[in-house]
Design a binder for these strands. Structure first.
Lengths: 204, 204
DNA sequence: TATTCTGAAATACAGACTGTCTAGCGAAAT
DNA sequence: ATTTCGCTAGACAGTCTGTATTTCAGAATA
């Protein structure tokens, strides 16, 4: 029963590539028809893979959606963006932060839309994908609000808590999408509208 | 084969009552577990009704959700509220409109959450329920923005279009819920936060 | 009271989907 | 040459939607 050494190279690469192909198929499917239900079978066909292979690679339907969520976060550089906004001056951080999330939302609009809707309807259906995104944003906005207060940039009648609440609202995907999809504004105009709203409401 | 006259009284009432019982069961189900998938079978059991009866009364799963959406609109008095806000002065209309939708959202939070999420994931799954709500709100906000402009209440750097966009954002269910559920603010604080944001950003 | 109508129950069925299991192929790794 | 393992193919149980059929009980009529 002595299992002999077995270092993978090509095989591991091939496995990683089918994983990638399945994820890409899901991306494609979501982009082409974001308002239609998604079946694992169709994803498998799109990826030219047998259906059980999807379960082999991602464990479950929820695992697949969780993975696509993690992929969006990583590709979009969400963490990096939040940290970058913390390096500039407080006022610059506000502008840059809003612009950063806006562009990231725009680049992945369909995927994020589906993930967050699924999370609302069935908490177990997407793993922790959206929770991770939300949590990072929550602490990021609390941090930004505190920095604005420390710099004396907030209006006198605005508390740190209230600033956090409003930043939470204005940097949400939902706010972006209400203007981008709902009002058909360009990415640029959405970022501008959200930024000026934050500035008018929070800054001196 | 001459069908004889047949005026219903008790029978129609009984039918209306089972319809009502099914709707109430769905309300109850959504309130008790808003983040779990809803099966028609469970709704039927809750309403103490056979599953085919649900299809008899509402035609389809989509028909049931469409009906519950219409019910929320009617009970919540959404139309009436929008019109009422149009009677007061423009500034009063802004305050009253935001407070009105906020209270209506709070009273039906779970149902609206599920309906709007379902609409995002599968356009055909809820009939026109959410579309009707959105459309009324869109024209209502355009109207309110125009009135504010006519009264010279808008900041000089704010166009009617921009005011419409921002009102659209701030009176959305998503904005309400981001603060109410996401930030755990009370209904009163949500209304206040949304109102002051609108006033700071739009009014002179 | 006898007859007719009809809302609802009970049951069964087709079809789509998820998730799991088995057997086996074929190419990579030794 | 032999072992390993990613993947396929096929089948299966279980859950869900939506529909069709039959039957019953009670309301509406005469």
């Amino acid at each position: 029963m002595a299992t002999r050494k077995y270092e993978q190279r090509l095989r591991a690469e091939a496995a990683e590539e089918t994983r990638r192909r399945i994820l890409d198929a899901l991306y494609q499917r979501l982009r082409e028809a974001p308002a239609e239900p998604v079946s694992i079978d169709r994803i498998a066909q799109l990826a030219r893979v047998a259906r059980p292979t999807v379960y082999l690679a991602f464990g479950s339907r929820a695992g697949l959606f969780d993975a696509v969520g993690a992929d969006v976060l990583q590709r979009g550089g969400f963490e990096r963006m939040l940290q970058a906004s913390a390096h500039a001056s407080a006022r610059e951080g506000l502008r840059g932060g809003i612009r950063g999330v806006t562009e990231m939302y725009a680049a992945n609009r369909d995927v994020i839309r589906v993930l967050s809707s699924m999370a609302q309807l069935d908490a177990a259906a997407v793993g922790g994908a959206t929770q991770r995104l939300e949590q990072g944003r929550a602490s990021g906005m609390a941090h930004l609000a505190q920095r604005l207060a420390d710099h004396g940039a907030l209006r006198p009648d605005v508390t740190v808590d209230h600033a956090t609440d409003l930043l939470w609202l204005l940097t949400s995907f939902e706010s972006f999408d209400l203007l981008y999809t709902g009002r058909k504004l360009s990415v640029d105009k959405v970022a501008k509208a959200l930024t000026t709203t934050a500035e008018h409401s929070l800054l001196q």
